[in-house]
Design a protein around this nucleic acid. Structure first.
Length: 158
DNA sequence: GCCAACGTTGGC
DNA sequence: GCCAACGTTGGC
């Protein structure tokens, strides 16, 4: 059982968008970065926990959680010429990109902003803090439970 | 909208 | 395989 942080721009796909999918389950596709792809393809398993993070918005923050329902399979968008995620170098036999299915699990009572995560001594080593641009990243069990705690409504100082 | 950090591309 | 040029991410 592993923990992850998935980034999404809420204008593109928010936690609410996931919640309104049929069965509250959506495909996490469009990942076109090799480091993120490798995590997805090799490490993300069904049952893993996901911190849902909103990026490129007014208050970047962890806003809730999701659960991985299906481990990696080839991202269909790479073969669709109409898709913005189309990749001419990918094929059925040799897919380059992968996606997973995740299901909405919870919305935090209080979103935990990046600014607060950066300030928190116990969260200073998060990949989110150290490597700003990675859209799929591992989270430790300790970071996971602390984030959940902060998200239940306890303030930063508590 | 700016810009720093980082990733990717392509010439050589 | 190096590296310059360019593109993208994402915080501020």
């Amino acid at each position: 059982m592993n923990y992850w942080l998935f980034k999404s721009e809420p204008d593109e796909y928010s936690l609410d968008d996931l919640a309104s999918e049929p069965d509250q389950t959506g495909r996490w596709d469009g990942i076109r970065n090799y480091q993120a792809r490798n995590f997805l393809r090799d490490k993300v398993n069904a049952g893993d926990g996901v911190l849902f993070y909103h990026s490129a918005c007014k208050v970047p923050a962890v806003v809730g959680t999701a659960e991985v329902m299906r481990a990696a399979y080839p991202d269909p968008a790479q073969l669709d010429p109409e898709s913005p995620y189309f990749d001419p170098k990918a094929s059925d036999e040799n897919p380059r990109w992968y996606c997973v299915d995740i299901r909405w699990q919870s919305q935090f009572a209080r979103a935990v902003p990046l600014a607060e995560i950066k300030q928190h001594p116990a969260l200073a080593d998060m990949v989110l803090v150290k490597q700003g641009r990675l859209s799929i990243q591992p989270v430790t069990a300790a970071e996971w439970s602390l984030l959940l705690q902060l998200g239940t409504g306890a303030g930063p100082g508590l």
